[in-house]
Design a protein around this nucleic acid. Structure first.
Lengths: 110, 110
DNA sequence: TCTTATACATAATTATCTTATGTATTCGTG
DNA sequence: CACGAATACATAAGATAATTATGTATAAGA
């Protein structure tokens, strides 16, 4: 499990990117997908994820579809057009940031 | 200039690593060195740097040497032995984190 | 002389995350 | 079939770390 300090600031980027890659997803599914992709090293907490999703929705970057699965509700999130653009920008920003950090820390990252 | 969100959590790692690479340095010098290494993309703010250095000192990870330059004081920071170990660990942690993020975001970096 | 750079520092505010708590359904297993 | 674990949503309190603002002072350069 990674030190959570470094994870700060990356949550929105992660959420936008997995939504971009997997189409519509619901909250719990996002946590599981990220856990899987990170080989158990990034465990998104609900206390961080849900407020983040709600914020993205309020900003029009994602839209939702509520589906009933038996008696349980499931709230799917999908990127809007601005959301797709932002997803791309955030990933680019992250890649650039890593490039800069590589220079500062003088290490190779592969 | 990078979005500061991503920078969060990396300050201590940066400070420890530049101290490790450059020996004794004073606060202002650290900001300038990081600015130089990052090609102007990472500008450490004093409000973040000084408290961070003081914390490292309180934890015995750096020690200080105060030098008078004319009428001005200059406070040099040097890594202690535990500080050197931590510097190495923090960089390793960062590299591992990037590796994980690469898997999650499914991008190549370099 | 006056602006910019050097050099330290702290305080108030903001943002984001963790931890804790809450509710409820569904699945798996002894 | 009972019960714990997993699924699935959500919010609130508290912690932490950063930004922004402010303060003091010297030195250099135009």
């Amino acid at each position: 499990m990674h030190s959570s300090e470094l994870l700060k600031g990356t949550l929105q980027t992660i959420v936008l990117k997995v939504l971009k890659d997997h189409g519509r997803m619901y909250g719990y599914e996002i946590t599981q997908r990220v856990k899987e992709l990170s080989d158990g090293r990034i465990l998104l907490t609900e206390g961080a994820l849900y407020p983040s999703l709600h914020k993205l929705e309020a900003e029009g970057l994602v839209k939702t579809e509520i589906v009933n699965i038996g008696k349980r509700i499931r709230k799917y999130y999908l990127l809007t057009s601005p959301g797709k653009i932002l997803a791309k920008d955030r990933v680019t920003e992250f890649v650039d940031f890593i490039s800069t950090m590589r220079s500062v820390l003088q290490v190779k990252m592969n």
